[in-house]
Design a protein around this nucleic acid. Structure first.
Lengths: 121, 121
DNA sequence: TTACTATATGTGTATTTTACCTATATATGA
DNA sequence: TCATATATAGGTAAAATACACATATAGTAA
């Protein structure tokens, strides 16, 4: 299988494909901020100890696709931050995920219900 | 982006990683059957027009991992079918997904709630 | 009997997505 | 000046998925 702890669905499996993307957009819709901060906030959606490289790549890809814009912030403590902000297109894109997520939730409900009806455990 | 219809989350995105696997196991728990029939039944979980090759590969992989067993059925109409059945290990594995799916449902709820609180549309 | 269609299982390979590892740079404090 | 925390970024391997194609059998229509 995949892991050595006997369960194959604990770590990376069971996640929704590219779910990080709408999560990042949602967080940016709440408040424009930089990547390192977003990494922390992603824990709200169950992303814990996520690889920073993945996040920065997503952000750059989303900027390329005009879902976000960015600017360098040199003031304040530490090294320069790249502050990201949601665009109108990004907002629309985020909303388009709403339907997908609702459908997914419904599918999960069906799965859990069918599973319970088996009267296992 | 990915598609040319303006939305990136309609087709392949937004799916749950390896979700087909527990779905197949659940269907087999309900009733042992063969791949071609499982492909039809997967529509229950939103898998529509899925590639048969993927399903057969999953089934063989799961047999290799002793989650299912199979036997050739030559009686009846048409070409021979390979009938799959859930093992005890497969049953345990299926149950281990229950927690993951519940957690995911909760995350989706959080996402949708946060999205609504933005008072977009 | 030939050809066509539906059923059923399977392979090969490219693409996409994710994970892991490493590199770079700056400010701060010891 | 040396170590550490903060912050961003790139290279590449592995995993998951998609797409195209191959094979075989039974039934049926020409």
């Amino acid at each position: 299988m995949c892991s050595d702890d006997g369960c194959c669905c604990g770590d990376s499996h069971g996640r929704i494909q590219r779910f990080i993307e709408p999560c990042l957009l949602l967080l940016l819709a709440q408040k424009p901020t930089h990547g390192y901060d977003l990494i922390d906030k992603l824990s709200l959606f169950g992303f814990d100890g996520i690889d920073p490289g993945t996040i920065y790549r997503y952000l750059r890809e989303m900027e390329k696709n005009q879902l976000v814009t960015s600017e360098w912030i040199t003031e304040g403590k530490g090294p320069a931050k790249r502050k990201y902000e949601l665009t109108g297109e990004g907002k629309e894109y985020l909303l388009s995920w709403q339907t997908v997520i609702k459908k997914n939730r419904e599918i999960l409900n069906i799965f859990l219900q069918e599973l319970e009806e088996l009267n296992f455990d």
